[in-house]
């Protein structure tokens, strides 16, 4: 079997595993960025056309 196939199967296994977000060990917030970066719906960028 092609080794990439093993990668595919490994991914299947990985997909079956649970996931967990971890908090940072240390987080220093100096300040917030400008007001333009406050959360709002993101326009979907157009797909690149070549």
């Amino acid at each position: 079997m092609h080794r990439t196939a093993l990668l595919v199967l490994a991914t299947l296994t990985l997909a079956a595993c649970g996931s967990k977000a971890e908090a940072p060990v240390e987080q220093i917030v100096v300040r917030q960025p400008g007001p333009a970066a406050t959360p709002s719906p993101a326009p979907t960028p157009t797909a690149p056309q070549t």
Partner: peptide
């Protein structure tokens, strides 16, 4: 992994918003 971080100088530098140690 990162065992210890000293960011005291960095956090006072221009433009810095946030410093993270993610392990």
């Amino acid at each position: 992994k990162v065992a210890k971080m000293d960011a005291s100088a960095a956090k006072a530098m221009p433009g810095v918003l946030q410093i993270l140690n993610r392990g």
